[in-house]
């Protein structure tokens, strides 16, 4: 469960994996794990994350290293997303744009064993083209499928030795749903505490969803 380094935490991630990457902008971005993944060398990755990287660090660095074949995200275009922008315009990375809430719900569905769901978001828009639709209670819905990850890389505030997690403020964002949606969930935390030190009533992600924890990010 608790591993010694970020390099140990990302060991074994295979080429072509689907990697769920937590964070909204920089908040909750598991920078230490992404840097370790760059060193680890896995390539041809599909990255699922809300954004497509900021500046030159984190997801942007993974993209810049040429390891990402496809990005599934809600909002790739930002003032400082120049790494993604260049790769996309050069045709070097594929993009699937998903409304933010649908992205979260598709991840949730994967973790909850739901086969697919009808969602009103995006009905009648370009993003619904080619998708099955149905009118339910007079409202148009679009059929959306789960997004499963081979690996989730997320950041949390504290973990105990059981892998129970608590988050901090809006850095929680995609962490709890991504933790449920991947075969292997890898977490970078501000501190690892003793079993029993987290209030069980306050645990956000129970350890059943967590595979590896590394004490890493500054907090």
């Amino acid at each position: 469960m608790i591993v010694a380094s970020a390099d140990d935490a990302v060991a074994g991630i295979a080429d072509g994996s689907t990697v769920l990457v937590g964070g909204f902008g920089r908040a909750g971005m598991p920078y230490g794990l992404i840097d370790a993944l760059i060193r680890q060398g896995a390539t041809g990755l599909t990255v699922v994350s809300n954004n497509a990287g900021n500046g030159d660090t984190g997801l942007a660095a993974l993209l810049k290293a040429g390891r990402v074949a496809k990005v599934i995200c809600s909002f790739p275009r930002q003032t400082d997303s120049y790494v993604f922008d260049q790769l996309y315009r050069a045709g070097q990375v594929e993009l699937e744009v998903v409304p933010q809430g649908t992205l979260a719900e598709r991840l949730r569905a994967a973790g909850a064993g739901i086969g697919a769901f009808f969602c009103p978001t995006g009905a009648g828009t370009l993003l619904a083209e080619g998708k099955e639709s149905r009118t339910i209670d007079g409202r148009d819905h679009v059929l959306e499928y789960p997004i499963r990850g081979d690996v989730a890389l997320i950041q949390a505030h504290r973990a105990d030795g059981m892998g129970n997690l608590v988050y901090r403020k809006t850095a929680r964002n995609f962490g709890p749903v991504m933790a449920t949606a991947a075969t292997t969930t890898i977490v970078e935390v501000g501190a690892v505490v003793e079993v029993g030190a987290l209030d069980p009533e306050a645990v956000v992600t129970p350890g059943i969803y967590v595979d590896r924890v590394v004490n890493g990010s500054p907090a």
Partner: peptide, 9 residues
């Protein structure tokens, strides 16, 4: 570059 964020939701 298409980007939608939470607008549709």
């Amino acid at each position: 570059i298409p980007a939608v964020g939470g607008a549709m939701d």
